[in-house]
Design a protein around this nucleic acid. Structure first.
Lengths: 151, 151
DNA sequence: TTTAATGCAAAAGATTTGCAACATG
DNA sequence: CATGTTGCAAATCTTTTGCATTAAA
């Protein structure tokens, strides 16, 4: 959780606004769960978020975490990442950004690039449907795993 | 399964070569499973591949399909896709290509673009690890789902 | 013949659901 | 107060594992 406080507050703000606009109830569980995703920079999965929220709110249940996460996803407040061979992970960073994913251990690292953000997609794609977001996924082997593989 | 026969044969050829080079046994199950992925263009998941192979080889088991698929992945013969909220899907297309993914139904459509293939990544990324592949993922809502959502 | 791969059944892991109790707007 | 949300427990779905049997090289 290395996201700065100001950014977190801004995300919380946005979350509350969206909920009010959509007529979705702001329960303490939702607030805690969203806060946890909003302040995480490691793309945690549902189980990890559950454990972290549990620290502050011992009565939350895992199924509420799942329900909330997918709700957030439907509201466009978080985005999912399918790391290879691992459970779905969640990301509250709505800025345009890209990912490096280690195919061995699932490590994900964000990176930013104006060049990549400026990508122009082939016109053909509009015939597939409506475009919501575009991001570049770089697959590789992270430093740590590269060492292990050398053995 | 709309991949043309020549391309399928080429993929099978490559598969057999890699297996021999790596000292991996060419069993009838592996041949059938790989063929099924090689000729599919709809990015099927393990269960779908299992059902299709089963048609021709009624005795294969689902766990062999899983084991084989991950083996193929480790060998670099297929690539995985984590469509949102769905089981892992597999793709034997090793050409550089990109994906349009529908966040509602998981529909995935390939597309090609020389411009996108020519993407230059920030140098920073090399510090994360070794790069194996880069692809662009476009998220959106496919035509069919757009209609449903309008209701 | 040696070693690896298969099938089966059972286990583990991830995610979802039904429902009664409860809290938000 | 009405309706949506929660927690619990149970169910479901996906994926993995142990082990005896079988088959490839």
């Amino acid at each position: 959780m290395k996201i700065n406080k100001q950014e977190i507050d801004q995300r919380m703000q946005h979350f509350e606004t969206v909920c009010r606009d959509e007529g979705i109830k702001l329960t303490p569980q939702r607030l805690e769960i969203f806060r946890e995703v909003a302040q995480a920079d490691d793309h945690p999965d549902a189980e990890q978020i559950f454990q972290r929220v549990r620290g502050r709110m011992p009565t939350v249940s895992l199924d509420t975490v799942y329900r909330t996460l997918w709700l957030l996803n439907d509201l466009g407040l978080v985005v999912t990442l399918g790391a290879s061979r691992e459970p779905t992970r969640f990301d509250a960073n709505l800025q345009s950004h890209h990912h490096f994913v280690c195919g061995q251990c699932g490590f994900i690292r964000d990176f930013y690039s104006n060049d990549l953000d400026a990508i122009r997609l082939p016109d053909l794609i509009r015939s597939f449907g409506e475009i919501k977001a575009t991001h570049v996924e770089v697959r590789g082997v992270c430093r740590e795993c590269a060492v292990k593989l050398r053995k």
